[in-house]
Amino acid sequence: MSAAGGVLGSGHEVPGGIWRGISFEDRMSTVEFRVGERAHITVDSDVCRSCTTKACVTACPANLFAPTSEGGILFNYEECFECGTCYMVCNHEGAITWTYPDGGQGVVFHQG
């Protein structure tokens, strides 16, 4: 059998386009999150307003930092990898309060 052959339907194989075609929502739907009641990370949007880098917006691998039209940040903790990227790239004291979710809650990786 040719590796490229019939086993895996050729329907997926749109050159160049296929991989970028995955929506971020579909990407995140492959990850299990046991969402706790407590927001383990909070962002003070008032501090963010004076931030010129907005580094968190592109760097957060879960894409959880949404810039608002007033120059602040809208943040949702629910689908977070608990990686630590955001607090490390943020250089505004007090913008991010970062803790782990309570025991047993948060992301559960099965293929890590």
Binding site: L8, H12, E13, R20, D26, R27, T30, T85, F109, H110
Partner: peptide, 25 residues
């Protein structure tokens, strides 16, 4: 996505589907 579209990598992965996405420092 760049990597998956690279001519040296794409042929290896043709037809593969995402099982889990993950990140860690």
């Amino acid at each position: 996505a760049d990597l998956k579209n690279h001519p040296s990598i794409a042929p290896y992965l043709r037809g593969a589907t995402l099982r889990e996405y993950a990140a860690h420092l």
